[in-house]
Design a protein around this nucleic acid. Structure first.
Lengths: 104, 104
DNA sequence: TAACAATATAACTATACAGTTATATTAGCA
DNA sequence: TGCTAATATAACTGTATAGTTATATTGTTA
């Protein structure tokens, strides 16, 4: 049984991942480091919005920042996020298959 | 690479788990089925609040409901939630250990 | 040095939702 | 049939936050 304090931290981690835009950013970073500009284009959002999301991800130690001149490059710093996505994906897939089986 | 639609569903799943009270409820259910009253006592909340959280968990197919007379018994219906918690826990533990190592 | 480019941040708005209080619903019981 | 218990739901409030717009900051370049 986990302590309430631990559950608070776990919930906070889930909260950071509970945003499609942030998941999209992480997906882009999966294929390597990217600048804010590159990310902004890749996820089709605005620069301030992407910067804000990156801040949230960094505060949770999911991404790391590297500054070069006037550019900021971000990269994944915690690969467990992909493990988490995989587990959720598997569960969703399973649910859909069960639903489908009802009509089989 | 996951599609934006898939990311939406994954984010929704994370959102349901991003609440300490819901994680607490799931933890209690880990040791077996429980009625709303039992859950309300176990998590030290109010009955309407617990009912609402249970609804959210049920809508996401994380718990299942069984009615007996005037009582409603809930149980885990998707064990992957514990896998998810374990992965997050491991990551958090790792982060803390890295922090600690700085002072070693 | 002046203009520009890249990023971060502040202020704002709209929306979502956790918790509360009150009430509806339904089943068992005297 | 009334009374009580268990659960669900509706209405409300306060808070958190995603996205936007405007601006600050800092480095590069002409």
């Amino acid at each position: 049984m986990m302590s309430p304090e631990a559950l608070l931290l776990v919930a906070a981690r889930f909260k950071v991942l509970a945003e499609p835009m942030r998941l999209q950013i992480l997906q882009v970073l999966k294929s390597g480091e990217a600048s804010v500009n590159e990310l902004t284009e890749a996820v089709a959002s605005t620069q301030p919005n992407v910067s804000k999301h990156l801040r949230v991800l960094q505060d949770e130690d999911l991404v790391a920042r590297r500054q070069v001149g006037n550019n900021a490059f971000y990269r994944i710093s915690d690969k467990t996020v992909f493990k988490l996505c995989d587990v959720v994906c598997g569960s969703l897939k399973n649910n859909f298959e069960e639903q489908a089986a009802i009509f089989a």
